[in-house]
Design a protein around this nucleic acid. Structure first.
Length: 849
RNA sequence: GCGAGAGUGGCGGAAUUGGCAGACGCACUAGACUUAGGAUCUAGCGGUUCAUCCGUGGGGGUUCAAGUCCCCCCUCUCGCACCA
């Protein structure tokens, strides 16, 4: 009955095929996918309401509407959709929303290039990409859709800003910031990678600007401690966050500077080595440099050094490979415990941003200080001796950074240096020379952007009253859309008097609005809460909805946000908690970071020319094939190598399933799936039924336990492979028809989260009236997994030599006897003494000779 | 340099706890059906000197039994990288 002709998925172009189509319709993904997508939309199948049973909030990172979806989206959202559909089958009330991270620079750049408006460009992209996502059959509740560029969204963000301003969590300060010239804006520290802009890859420059910051450092300790609670996150993500926060415990120590009003303060984690501090190193940009060097006669040399360091490209400075270099300021400070005079140097390796920008140098016990001391011939004093040898400053070739006992350290001599850490800190504190301190690497989050397409910062500057927040009643500060974006002359808002000219809310006098907009990472720091409150316009959130839906149970997205978006969101959630909006701290209970989609060994990108357009795949093979391949080719956390032939394979499987269905459905329509006992079946059907229930159990374990859809799919393929010969030879036997029907229904149910369209169509063709998307997951009948006999492997000296069939409940003695009776075993044990027989019930027998 | 992860057929990948290495798929080979096949079906498919022996990056070890556990080494990927 293999009458079917024509090519899979090619829309039936073969001549003479028409006749066959009538009697045995060809798998036509375009037709059935359109049908079911329309069906789901009309019935609102995936719309959910609050409080309707046990909730499950599944979220994928929302896309930036750049124009069209790419394979990374297809993969990310296919993974999410399987989980959403699967959890629905498990009976959960699943919220699965989608929206748009719609502010951002590409819109502005595109507007400049194409002479259109960022808003127009963005909204067109959203419309197109929404159609593409619908075409993939993703089960979103579109009623909850949001776009962050809508005033109805960002008005709440402006409100949060005002509340944060009140609490001192948003503040403005003048500081050195990262400036990206092509992007013409400032970047947060998190957005600079290896000294380059995360978006365009250009090296960033340092500029002194007055900018708005969010005080994320106030939450450093809590964000760090929270990492321990994130059991559902990949460890490498929490590790990256811990490293980024960079907590270190040490001490602040004060070094008097004779002739200066203020002493110098350092942060060190090695206060135990204080007696060995022989000089002081400052960052070249340290604010006290000019004052310290004044009157020493070394001004010119120091100035030259500072200028050179400033020019030194930041990327190079951060590589850590530069030779140690510095300059003497001509001034000295005093070691507070030894009274020794320590020359003050500027050193190229000292970072202004970390600690206090000043480092006490202990050349004997710090490699950098050691190199610097050798370079400039500075004294080396050993204060820690290793247990097994004696260090001599004259002959040392590198610093000794390990542990040991203190020497040359006054009252602390002989103490273990690790024990001395707290003791020295206490000693300093008693004398007012310093104190134990915790230092973090994390800096505050700079959120000002000198760009147009973002949420305006709701602040007004008045000459008389200073910085004045926009009154809540005046929100939102709407981003004007009737503005020309040219890319010339700086931020468009700063060139739009209609926007920035205003009156002071405090005194009524003329005033000027802030023309910077907020970093778009602010919008994505709270969108997942807003999804739960779609349409709620009295307040940012509906407390009842938030307490029902939040936090997100499962979040899915790319590893590239391991720090950026995920750290900001954790911070923002805590801020919202402290402002009284939510009552939880961690937004995402479980996190899955999926790998990249690569082709020819590289990430898909226009510049590499290895991009596969999802549209082409959908047109040729359909959405089910695209979904199936992206789930089958690799487990989600690994990179996925795109392979056109692999796509063919996925398509082939669906075609095979379709044909098989049409061969056997006539014989299945009028029977019920088998639901009786295993024992009542003949052997071949018993084996099929066992396979059905093994498959159910495997698929559940693979999807639920670890999101390994690739092995879940291969389990179903195995079932189909076993089912096929029986189905093709199916006669009138009602028992056989019922078991085959049970098998076919299991296949459709188990595959439905993965390929929802073809399975829905076949389900209907099988005569089922209940919608497949609303069916519960099949249950594994444990009795059907039982067998009367089991096959055991028989090994001789660990090598497989035979297989034996024994009763499932045979005892070890019986198993051993059966194994020893094997001819093949006899061949390998002949003439040798059996030293030992290991029996592992249900698995194997190992005969040791 | 530090931290994490990985290394399995020609390829993507399987192997829940130490217990049959290579499931499933791709590619490939042969055959069937064909005017034809890039469709479909059947069979084969780690290597080998083929009733054997060797095989999970390399070397050692523990064990009746190791891809899995322990030690040393190599390679790759990712993250951090002068953090005092």
């Amino acid at each position: 009955m293999h009458l079917l002709q024509g090519r899979a998925g090619k829309n039936g172009k073969t001549p003479g095929q028409l006749k066959k189509e009538v009697m045995d319709p060809q798998y036509d993904p375009q037709r059935i996918e359109a049908k079911w997508q329309r069906h789901w939309e009309e019935r609102q199948t995936f719309a959910v309401a609050d409080g309707d049973g046990e909730k499950y909030y599944l979220l994928e990172m929302f896309p930036y509407p750049s124009g069209k979806i790419h394979m990374g989206h297809v993969r990310n959202y296919s993974i999410g959709d399987v989980v959403a559909r699967y959890m629905r089958m498990k009976g959960y009330n699943v919220m699965h929303p989608m929206g748009w991270d719609a502010f951002g620079m590409p819109a502005e750049n595109a507007a400049i290039e194409r002479k259109t408006h960022p808003a127009t460009w963005t909204r067109q992209n959203i419309d197109y990409m929404r159609r593409q996502l619908r075409r993939m059959g993703f089960s979103y509740d579109w009623n909850r859709e949001l776009a962050t560029c809508d005033p109805s969204y960002y008005r709440w963000e402006q409100l949060f800003f005002l509340k944060m301003y009140e609490k001192g969590l948003a503040y403005k300060k003048q500081s050195a910031v990262n400036w990206c010239e092509p992007c013409r804006t400032v970047l947060a520290n998190e957005q600079v990678e290896d000294g380059r802009c995360w978006r365009c890859g250009t090296e960033v420059e340092s500029r002194e600007l007055s900018q708005w910051f969010f005080r994320i450092t106030a939450y450093a300790e809590e964000l760090l401690a929270g990492c321990d609670e994130l059991a559902g996150w990949p460890e490498r993500v929490t590790t990256m966050q811990r490293n980024w926060i960079g907590k270190s415990i040490g001490a602040r120590i004060v070094f008097p500077v004779p002739g200066a009003e203020e002493p110098l303060t350092v942060f060190t984690t090695r206060q135990d080595t204080l007696w060995g501090a022989t000089f002081m190193s400052l960052a070249p940009e340290h604010p006290r440099v000019a004052e310290l060097v004044a009157g020493t006669g070394r001004e010119a040399e120091v100035e030259e050094f500072v200028a050179r360091q400033r020019k030194q490209r930041r990327g190079d400075r951060e590589l850590g490979t530069l030779e140690k270099e510095g300059v003497f300021t001509g001034r000295y400070c005093i070691n507070p415990v030894t009274g020794g005079r320590m020359p003050i140097y500027l050193a190229n390796f000292v970072l202004l941003e970390y600690g206090t920008g000043a480092v006490m140098a202990v050349p004997a016990h710090d490699q950098r200080d050691f190199e610097f001391a050798r370079q400039y011939d500075l004294p080396v004093i050993v204060v820690i001796q290793p247990p097994d040898r004696e260090l001599d400053p004259a002959t040392m070739t590198e610093a000794y950074a390990e542990s040991g006992f203190l020497v040359n350290s006054g009252a602390f001599n002989g103490m273990d240096n690790r024990a001395a850490l707290d003791a020295v800190a206490a000693h300093l504190a008693e004398r007012g020379l310093g104190e134990k301190t915790v230092n973090y690497r994390l800096r505050d989050w700079g959120i000002s952007r000198q760009r147009y397409w973002g949420a305006p910062i709701p602040i007004i500057y008045c000459e008389r009253c200073g910085t004045v927040p926009v009154p809540e009643a005046d929100l939102p500060v709407v981003l004007p859309e009737d503005i020309g974006v040219t890319g010339e002359g700086g931020s468009p808002l700063a060139q739009a008097p209609a926007f920035y000219e205003t009156v002071c809310p405090a005194c009524g006098g003329p005033a000027r609005r802030e023309t910077d907009t907020m970093d778009t990472f602010v919008e994505s720091s709270w969108y997942y809460i807003r999804y739960a409150c779609a349409g709620h316009d009295a307040a940012p959130f509906d407390p009842a909805a938030v307490s029902y839906w939040l936090p997100v149970d499962q979040y899915i997205g790319g590893i590239e946000h391991a720090i950026l978006h995920l750290l900001y969101s954790r911070f923002f959630t805590r801020v919202l908690r402290d402002l009284g909006y939510v009552d939880f701290a961690e937004p995402f209970t479980r996190l899955l970071t999926q790998g990249m989609v690569i082709k020819d060994g590289a990430k898909m990108s226009k510049s590499k020319g290895n991009v596969v357009d999802p549209n082409a795949i959908i047109e040729r093979y359909g959405a089910d094939t695209a979904r199936m391949f992206s789930l089958f080719a690799a487990p989600p956390e690994l990179d996925l190598e795109w392979n056109d032939q692999g796509v063919e394979g996925a398509s082939r499987f669906l075609n095979r399933l379709w044909r098989l269905a049409h061969e056997v459905f006539p014989a299945l329509r009028d029977v019920e799936p088998y639901a009786g006992a295993l024992a009542d079946l003949p052997e071949d059907l018993r084996s099929l039924r066992r396979k059905i229930h093994q498959t159910i159990s495997r698929v559940i374990a693979d999807i639920e336990g670890r999101f390994h859809f690739n092995t879940a799919i291969s389990a179903v393929m195995e079932l189909v492979n076993e089912l096929r010969p029986l189905a093709e030879a199916l006669g009138d036997d009602p028992l056989a028809r019922r078991v085959v029907r049970e098998a076919f229904e299991a296949v459709l149910l188990l595959l439905s989260p993965i390929v929802p369209h073809i399975t829905a169509e076949l389900w209907q063709e099988l005569g089922r009236e209940t919608e497949l998307a609303a069916c519960p997951l099949p249950e594994c009948d444990p009795d059907s997994l039982l067998t009367d006999t089991v096959t055991l492997v028989v090994q001789v000296n660990g090598r497989v030599r035979d297989r034996i069939e024994v009763a499932a409940d045979a005892d070890n003695a019986a198993i051993e006897a059966a194994a020893m009776a094997s001819d093949k075993v006899g061949k390998f044990t002949a003439g040798k003494a059996v030293r030992k027989v290991v029996v592992v019930p249900g698995k194997l027998v190992n005969v040791v000779v």
